[in-house]
Design a binder for these strands. Structure first.
Lengths: 331, 331
DNA sequence: TTGTAGGCGTTATCAA
DNA sequence: TTGATAACGCCTACAA
């Protein structure tokens, strides 16, 4: 049975109010009383009951991150950004997982059920009734990846990323640029579509051969290896591969290519996507297009805190991050 | 202003108690009433206030993971294990960060302040008063890495891991096995000491040259690259490197070695540690000693849940995971 | 400077 | 099968 503020008060021979004030380091309490109370608190290892406090205050002092996928590299780097920013604040970080399809309901549960004061959502596609509901509740949400005009959001310019990657390959003399996308376009998630559009437009603008070279796979090392097999089966290897599905796919392709005696970048240039820890770990330096995920995490937190501090007075805004081509050895 | 149970009750023309019972899907409520109440709940987007509920129940239905370092690969894989297990339960996952040195106080804050029902600690070194305190409070803690007899814990046999790695290298004909440890031995954390002992004993048992070959560095790719430089400066390269400091160090070394024209494994064999995603991503397959971190996360959660379900009736136990040598291309 | 009283939203107990 | 009431631990007026 944990210690309560009442017990502390009793032991210290004061009223609960006094203890409460001591905890807030209020100036209204005499130095002597304060010292005495603090001693008892220390001795008894008293920590205020969080629920009691929150219930009274109507706030949770927590910020939620909600996604419908488990830990992965992207999320890890994003969370790192959030963590780095939050630990100096009085806020707690809470991660929530929602089954794909139930993100919106989970979001409402968190917000209305007072499990957190704001929710940062990763790749969550809202619908109209949901947005309406949120509008009526101070828009306590920061959309990441799939952003919504009129709400706080953190975005990445996926179109430019894909375009610039292909542009770089084209200017380096590559003519047949294959792409792996990880997911069918028109899934609803803007990042898939934007990368696809960026690729297509660049292919068109730079007069490359293409389209039929498009490959679709997952996001894993394994799918990168498969990609190599599939490319080989076709007979004629493209002279470049843009893994819009991420660095892992690229790393997997590299392994398989090496095993098959394909030379990178001589036979085929390879570009990854994200510049994650994976891109740094390949033995042959992986060229890639950088998405500043950690910074995006920091930014999402910043927006969330701002939203809380200023409540409805501040105009929501979307911060869009720009890609950066990183050239190492594979392209 | 979120909807409360009272408002729902009023709208439905029943008492708050009834609504509460409906939410628990109690059998005491008539089908008609239940349907009616549920309709109102749905319409109003009502979600019970978490704090109110918890305050009343004295439980938090949350499990905490506490560590004094930010996201990294190890923690990511561990958390993945925890997440995979928890999402089918009614429990929430809460991650807490504690400044190095304040882990124990944070732990008490979480437990006594009712921010979670159990704490899973990563590499936290408890002291005697703390353990005493915990004993008086149902030992609601699961120690990971640095375990404590008499408490629940998840451990890894670091001694065997290091010993077996060196043993493998010795049996493969290597005579001068260098090791990078990432941290000075005798830091207090058992994993550092155990790996050091495992290495030393294997070196002795297999009659290898050594000791002066020991290198100490951090845990990053960068430190792996530095390692290569330092080894080269010495003139005479060892014929094997055991990166007890993890796969990242090994991956970094591989990059630098390649750049310097050192052949792996011909000139020098390389063994990593963990078999993390990094070990899978190197272009040349990294031989390593596997630590089943994900499984350890699942296990920690299992123990935590058990501890909660059975309260003080179950005897605490420590689950120790065994290493597994994984041979790819570098050794 | 300190104490008293009421209420935050929920659920458990007990009565109807 | 349902409803009234009290209590969880804390904070905040307000009173002393």
């Amino acid at each position: 049975m944990p210690v309560t503020i009442k017990q502390i008060a009793e032991l210290a021979g004061v009223a609960p109010t006094t203890v409460s004030l001591v905890l807030k380091d209020s100036k209204k309490i005499g130095a002597e009383t304060k010292k005495n109370v603090l001693k008892i608190i220390e001795e008894m290892d008293y920590y205020p009951n969080h629920s009691g406090k929150l219930l009274k205050q109507g706030r949770t002092d927590a910020i939620a991150v909600l996604s419908s996928y488990f830990q992965n590299i992207y999320k890890m780097e994003f969370m790192y950004g959030v963590e780095r920013g939050i630990f100096t604040t009085p806020f707690q970080l809470r991660q929530f997982y929602a089954q794909p399809g139930s993100e919106l309901s989970k979001c409402k549960e968190i917000l209305f059920g007072k499990m957190a004061d704001v929710v940062i959502t990763l790749s969550v596609l809202p619908d109209a009734p949901f947005l309406e509901k949120m509008c009526a509740n101070n828009k306590r949400i920061v959309f990441v990846e799939d952003v919504v005009p009129g709400f706080f959001g953190v975005a990445f310019d996926n179109y430019a990323a894909a375009y610039q990657a292909v542009e770089y390959l084209a200017k380096a003399g590559r003519r047949r640029v294959a792409m792996s996308l990880g997911m069918k376009p028109y899934s609803g998630h803007c990042f898939v579509e934007d990368r696809f559009r960026g690729y297509s437009n660049a292919v068109r603008d730079f007069g490359l051969e293409s389209e039929d070279l498009l490959e679709m796979e997952g996001y894993t090392l394994e799918s990168g290896r498969d990609l190599c097999d599939r490319l080989l089966e076709r007979g004629k290897l493209p002279d470049a591969l843009f893994c819009a599905s991420g660095d892992s796919t690229a790393a997997g392709f590299l392994q398989a290519a090496l095993a098959h005696g394909i030379r990178v970048p001589e036979d085929i240039a390879v570009m990854g996507f994200d510049d994650s820890i994976i891109a740094h770990s390949t033995t042959i330096g992986l060229s890639t297009v950088r998405q500043p995920v950690l910074e995006m995490g920091e930014c999402a937190l910043r927006l969330a805190l701002q939203l809380l501090e200023t409540e409805e007075t501040v105009e929501p805004r979307i911060e869009t991050f720009k890609p950066q081509i990183v050239i190492r050895q594979t392209a």
